[in-house]
C-alpha cells in the first residue's frame, strides 16, 4: 500500500505565527495521491489549498509557518525529516510546481531560454549527469515544442515581458516539466487566463501528464476546470479535507453539506437564476470554531459537531466524507 502512494499526508497541522497571534490554518489534513493518479483539490480562497501543496515540497516560509504535527511522505520518505540536501535533490528531480501567476513565477531579467536551461542543467546534475551547452539547448527547444510554442528558437531569446499571459504560463509548464518526473503540482494554472486560453492550457497539461504517466495535483477554485482533467477530487474547507471521491461520483452525488452548498452556489450555464450563497463566512483562523469547522454555517449541525472534528467515513467505493451525518453507515 505504502509504496503505491506518491504523496501521503497524515494528520498535518500547520500554524502561522503572525503579529495578531497564531493562526491555526491546516487542521489535520489527510491527503493521498497514488502513483500516476490525477488528483484535484478544490475549495474557496483561503482554505489552505496552497499551504497544503507547498508543505509537500517544504517550500512554506518558516517562520511564520510552523508544522505542529503530522507526517508528509513523498515516495515513502518523510519530507519533514529530510536533510536540506535531500530536499534540494527532491525538488530538482522528483516534484515540480506550476504557480498561479506566471508573471510572478518567471524572472523578468533573464531570457526564458536561460531560465529553462538552468533547470535542465541542475536537474541533470542531480541525476548525476554532466550535460553540455548544446544538449541543454536541444532539450530546451524540445520542451518548448512539447508545450506547443511556435518558433522555439526565437522565443528562447525573449524576456517574459515580451510574451502574452498564455505563453508565459506555457513557459512555466515547460519549466515544471523538465524536472517533474514523478509529480507535478499545478496551483490554479488557468485562473489568470481567459476561458479560451485556459481551455488550451488545461488540455495541454492533461495531454502531457497522460503521455508521461506523471501524477498531478491540480488546485483550483474553478470547479469545472478540475472536473475535466482529474480522476479523483478532494474538497477542502477551512484547513481540512471534508470530502474525497472519484470525480464522477463527487459531481453527481456530493455528500458533505459544504460540498453541496458550494456546487449549488455556482452559476449554471443552464440558467434558472442564482441560488443563495452559503450563509456566514469562512472562519477566522485566529479563533476557529471547535469541532467541525463548518458547523457555524451548517444547517445540519448537531452538538457533537461542535465538540470533535469528524473523521473520514467511508461511504461507497472510494468515497470518503468527514461528516457525522454519514457516521452510522
Amino acid at each position: 500500500m505504502m509504496s503505491e502512494m506518491i504523496v501521503d499526508i497524515r494528520d498535518l497541522y500547520v500554524n502561522f505565527n503572525i503579529y495578531e497571534g497564531v493562526t491555526r490554518v491546516l487542521n489535520g489534513v489527510n491527503f493521498r495521491v497514488a502513483k500516476g493518479e490525477k488528483v484535484g483539490l478544490i475549495g474557496e480562497a483561503g482554505c489552505g489549498k496552497t499551504t497544503t501543496v507547498k508543505s509537500i515540497m517544504k517550500i512554506l516560509q518558516m517562520p511564520p509557518a510552523e508544522v505542529m504535527g503530522g507526517e508528509i511522505y513523498l515516495e515513502g520518505l518523510d519530507v519533514l525529516k529530510m536533510s536540506q540536501r535531500d530536499l534540494q535533490m527532491m525538488r530538482r528531480k522528483t516534484v515540480s510546481m506550476i504557480f498561479q501567476d506566471p508573471t510572478a513565477a518567471l524572472n523578468p531579467v533573464f531570457k526564458v531560454g536561460d531560465q529553462i536551461g538552468d533547470i535542465i542543467k541542475y536537474n541533470q546534475l542531480a541525476l548525476g549527469n554532466k550535460i553540455s551547452k548544446e544538449e541543454i539547448h536541444e532539450k530546451t527547444v524540445q520542451v518548448l515544442k512539447e508545450v506547443q510554442m511556435p518558433d522555439p528558437e526565437r522565443l528562447m531569446n525573449s524576456y517574459p515581458i515580451q510574451l502574452s499571459g498564455g505563453m508565459r504560463q506555457r513557459i512555466s509548464i515547460a519549466m515544471a516539466l523538465v524536472s517533474a518526473t514523478n509529480l507535478l503540482i499545478a496551483d490554479e494554472p488557468g485562473t489568470n487566463l481567459d476561458v479560451t486560453i485556459q481551455d488550451q492550457v488545461l488540455r495541454l497539461l492533461g495531454d502531457l501528464v497522460e503521455d508521461r504517466g506523471t501524477s498531478i495535483i491540480l488546485i483550483s477554485h474553478a470547479l469545472g476546470a478540475v472536473k475535466g482533467l482529474v480522476d479523483r477530487v478532494y474538497v477542502m474547507y477551512a484547513g481540512s479535507m471534508v470530502e474525497a471521491a472519484n470525480t464522477e461520483d463527487l459531481f453527481s452525488d456530493p455528500l458533505h453539506p459544504y460540498t453541496k452548498a458550494l456546487f449549488k452556489a455556482v452559476p449554471k450555464l443552464t440558467g434558472g437564476g442564482i441560488p443563495m450563497g452559503i450563509p456566514g463566512r469562512i472562519p477566522n483562523y485566529l479563533s476557529p470554531p471547535t469541532g467541525c469547522r463548518f458547523n457555524p454555517r451548517c444547517s445540519h449541525a448537531k452538538p457533537e459537531c461542535r465538540e470533535n472534528a469528524p473523521p473520514f467515513y467511508q461511504v461507497g467505493d472510494g468515497h470518503e466524507v468527514a461528516c457525522y451525518l454519514y457516521g452510522g453507515q
Binding site: 481551455d199 488545461l202 469545472g224 459531481f251 453527481s252 456546487f263 449554471k268 450555464l269 443552464t270
Partner: peptide, 23 residues
C-alpha cells in the same frame, strides 16, 4: 470552452470548437 460541472450543462454547450491561437 467554458468548464462546467453538471451533465445538464454539458448538454447545452455547443459542439466542441477547439480553441486555437491567441487574441
Amino acid at each position: 470552452s467554458i468548464p462546467v460541472i453538471t451533465r445538464e450543462e454539458e448538454a447545452v454547450k455547443p459542439d466542441k470548437v477547439v480553441s486555437m491561437g491567441e487574441i
